[in-house]
């Protein structure tokens, strides 16, 4: 990010000046701060709700039980993760939320999972194998029903809005598998 961010900004600003978009860019800067706040407020509620619920689940032992059930599935993708790791529950919930299409629920929980993984990370400045795996799963995100796209297709008068469901699953599945393989090979 330290290298990409200034480059994207500088090149864009220069291009914008040549395109005569100076005024639009200035308003764009202020609009960006507004949408950043909106994004955070959207996540804020859900992340607090999740933290609150998980506190109860933790103290009542629900998490312990759930982890024992989910662990075998997660273990394949995250072999270094220990059974009692707090990240197990978060990762499971993150994956479930992604699959059923609750993207805005998945993100806050994924962030929590990353924080738990960082506690177990040996080299604090580098992404661990587990973190890479979680990132790959989220960057490609397998989603059973791409609801937003279907809704948009329907609103533009598509004869069969849901015909894209299978191709979507196939495309994201292939991408995720390749991502998982890359992480498995290159990270020990």
């Amino acid at each position: 990010m330290n290298r990409i961010w200034p480059w994207i900004l500088t090149i864009s600003l220069v291009v914008g000046i040549f395109n005569g978009k100076v005024q639009e860019m200035t308003t764009g800067l202020f609009d960006s701060s507004k949408s950043a706040i909106e994004t955070c407020i959207n996540i804020f509620g859900i992340i607090s709700l999740w933290c609150g619920l998980m506190k109860i689940a933790e103290k009542t032992g629900i998490i312990n039980k759930a982890q024992k059930i989910i662990f075998p599935i997660i273990h394949f993708l995250f072999p270094n993760l220990k059974k009692d790791s707090k990240a197990v529950g978060d990762i499971a919930m993150n994956m479930t939320a992604n699959i059923i299409g609750l993207g805005n629920v998945a993100t806050p929980i994924g962030i929590k999972a990353m924080e738990e993984l960082q506690k177990e990370n040996k080299e604090k400045t580098k992404l661990s194998k587990e973190m890479m795996m979680l990132l790959v799963l989220n960057m490609s995100s397998i989603q059973l029903i791409p609801t937003t796209v279907i809704a948009l297709r329907a609103s533009y008068g598509s004869a069969n809005p849901t015909e894209i469901v299978l191709p979507v699953i196939l495309a994201s599945f292939v991408a995720v598998i390749i991502g998982v393989i890359i992480v498995k090979i290159f990270y020990k």
Binding site: M1, W5, I8, L9, S12, L13, V15, G16, N19, K21, E24, M25, G28, L29, D31, S32, S33, S35, A36, I37, T39, C40, I43, F44, I47, S48, L49, W50, C51, G52, L53, M54, K55, I56, P108, I111, K112, E115
Partner: peptide
């Protein structure tokens, strides 16, 4: 538990802002 959500959001916000600024300018500038 819910109170812990705030510290996470406070940490995310600067990143979200930086990313959104870069992307918006990337789009708007052409």
């Amino acid at each position: 538990g819910a109170a812990e959500g705030f510290s996470t959001i406070a940490k995310i916000f600067p990143t979200v802002l930086a990313v959104i600024i870069a992307i918006n300018i990337f789009k708007i500038s052409g």
